[in-house]
């Protein structure tokens, strides 16, 4: 019958469309799974790298000068950048707080806002984000270039374990220098906030200091330091990992630097949330 034929035809067309759609859907699922398993594999690699570096921790005592050298290199070289950004973070915080408070909150609390914002969040997070670009990318580029030029292989052949001589000193330096940089950043941000508050917003120093001390919690400083240490580890680890996995040539090294910054920034914000969630 013609009607039956028509319905059979439309039915088979529908089946074909569903088949095609199902095929595309399965293909999409397969692609997603592939991407996901690749990412999981990379996370596994990073954890393994971290464990391999930590296994070499006793070597720190054999040659602490290597770590000290990195400590100075990372710390001193980052200082000018930290000074500039911290001052303006404080200044912006003060201006923003004054604008948001206008008509609702007395200016006594400007110092409180700057202090809380700087110590709890902007100090460790913005410092770490900036250092991800300054320190992490430099580590990725250096390790990537050393890999490209077979210097890492040369070290291995000479029994100079790259994890011991390159990775461990950088990781320890990152973990311990970041809190120092964050303390400097916090101090300069508060100074930046003070200068803007007193000179531009015409609030007295005594009022600003009252605000700073009001609601100040040493626990906030502790969590800020813990964050800084974890972020320091993340930045160095991402730099080293992406340097080790750099592709060939200038393009490969450039991409490794870029990936290390992107991965560090993402991890810093995710881990920041986790620490805040646990700590408060």
């Amino acid at each position: 019958m013609p009607t039956d034929n028509r319905s059979r035809t439309s039915g088979s067309a529908l089946a074909l469309i569903l088949d095609a759609a199902g095929g595309q859907f399965l293909r999409l699922l397969a692609l997603l799974w592939e991407g996901l398993s690749h990412k999981i594999g990379r996370i596994g690699e990073v954890i393994l790298l971290l464990l391999r570096i930590l296994k070499r921790l006793p070597w720190f005592f054999m040659n602490p000068s290597l770590t000290l050298e990195q400590f100075i290199r990372i710390g001193v070289s980052s200082l000018p950048l930290i000074i500039v950004i911290s001052f303006f973070i404080g200044a912006v915080s003060a201006v923003q707080a004054e604008y948001q408070f206008r008509g609702f909150v007395p200016s006594n609390y400007l110092g409180t806002a700057v202090c809380k914002l700087v110590i709890i969040e902007s100090g460790p997070v913005l410092t770490a984000l900036v250092l991800a670009g300054r320190v992490g990318s430099a580590i990725a580029a250096q390790i990537g270039t050393m890999k490209e030029k077979e210097e890492l292989d040369a070290m291995t052949v000479l029994d100079l374990d790259p994890l011991r001589y390159l990775a461990l000193p950088r990781l320890l330096a990152g973990i311990f220098v970041f809190p120092l940089l964050v303390i400097i950043s916090d101090f300069l941000s508060i100074v930046g906030g003070w200068i803007i508050t007193t000179l531009v917003l015409k609030v007295t120093t005594a009022t600003y200091v009252f605000g700073l001390r009001f609601l100040f919690q040493p626990y906030d400083v502790l969590t800020s330091m813990i964050k800084a240490m974890v972020f320091g580890g993340i930045v160095v680890l991402m730099g080293y990992y992406h340097g080790l996995n750099a592709g060939p040539g200038a393009k490969g090294v450039g991409q490794a630097s870029m990936k290390s910054v992107v991965a560090s920034c993402m991890l810093i914000l995710i881990v920041d949330f986790l620490i805040v969630y646990i700590a408060y």
Partner: peptide
């Protein structure tokens, strides 16, 4: 490592 040494194609000196 004790018995072998290697000269790399690009020399691989530590820059």
């Amino acid at each position: 490592r004790k018995r072998m040494g290697m000269l790399f194609q690009g020399a691989a000196l530590f820059d």
